[in-house]
Nucleic acid binder design. Structure first.
Lengths: 174, 174
DNA sequence: GACAGTTCTGTCCGATCGGTCAGTTATCGT
DNA sequence: ACGATAACTGACCGATCGGACAGAACTGTC
């Protein structure tokens, strides 16, 4: 039942946003009462946090791996890490859907926003000029969004071209 | 006064989303009563529509220009058009801020969503495989988002690298 | 059948939302 | 000075929101 609720929740969050999805909407989709949702989850935010947890964990790991790196090496590893992450979670679109929603539509959730903000910083914070920042956002949001939309990306194409060829084009290396 | 309201509205929409911004929030930011907002604007949606109107017009023009094109030429012109558009509106960040918000956080506004959906179709609908779709989304959303975040992008860099060099990398041409 | 624990629900609550409206205040031409 | 018009506001409305809570329904054990 918990799983059913999360399935409905993530689908509706993705379609209408976190704020655009009421507990009643989820309950109707599941086929139970609104009160039943709040028996399984302490509140609405908990659903979002729980759905975000797996990818949040992966981002934490990535951040640890990026911590000692600096300069171009850091930027390269950061984008590569995000690409890897999006590929690894591609089968579980619901997680990325939620991440995007959380990032863009629900910025006030600190646990969600904290980790993504730090990831963006790790992506672009160590390079002085602005172009990499653009690249970082494009990589993070673009990939997440396309993945979230259910677009099927050939692994090799995505991995290679974005982590190598795209670097110069997007200004991540000279 | 109308201008003050729109200024506050777009800033708050960008920060907290359309749904995350109440009329009271805007009124407090402007320094007037909530009722005063609704004296100048018939309703909340009108503010969004009015802010979106200029860029909406530009997108319409772009769509007309893209209509007769096909294949790679169409895709190239489409991405170039979006880049041009984002550059042209860079000084008026509020418009793009709102566009992104509308696109991602307020998908039920038909006048807003209709035009962006058609733009995405024009961007990626004419090319068979999936890679260009990814590129299209990345271009549209990535550029809009980075621009929306107030990131300053050197015109030449952005224009040239994204409309020419990035094509092969992102799979828009072989 | 009696019982206990889990699962679920109907009903209610305070808060907040977008929006309405009667009435007040400010502005301005005469 | 005065009336007309525009600008603005406080008070209020119905709807909806997330959430609380007591009790019903279900499940398994003895």
């Amino acid at each position: 039942m918990r799983a059913d609720i999360l399935d409905s929740a993530v689908r509706l969050f993705a379609a209408h946003g976190f704020r655009g999805t009421s507990l009643q909407d989820i309950a109707s989709d599941v086929g139970c009462s609104k009160a039943s949702l709040l028996y399984h989850f302490t509140n609405k935010d908990t659903m979002l946090s729980e759905l975000f947890a797996p990818v949040g964990q992966e981002i934490e790991t990535l951040l640890e791996r990026l911590a000692p790196l600096r300069g171009e090496e850091a930027a390269r590893a950061a984008v590569a890490g995000v690409v890897d992450l999006s590929l690894r979670f591609r089968g579980q679109v619901k997680i990325l859907l939620l991440d995007v929603d959380a990032l863009l539509c629900h910025p006030e959730l600190p646990d969600v926003n904290g980790v993504t903000d730090r990831l963006v910083d790790a992506l672009v914070g160590r390079v002085p000029d602005q172009a990499p920042r653009v690249a970082g956002w494009m990589a993070l949001l673009g990939i997440f969004l396309t993945t979230a939309r259910g677009v099927d990306i050939p692994d090799e194409t995505m991995r290679v071209e974005l982590t190598h060829g795209a670097f110069r084009t997007l200004g991540l290396s000279s």
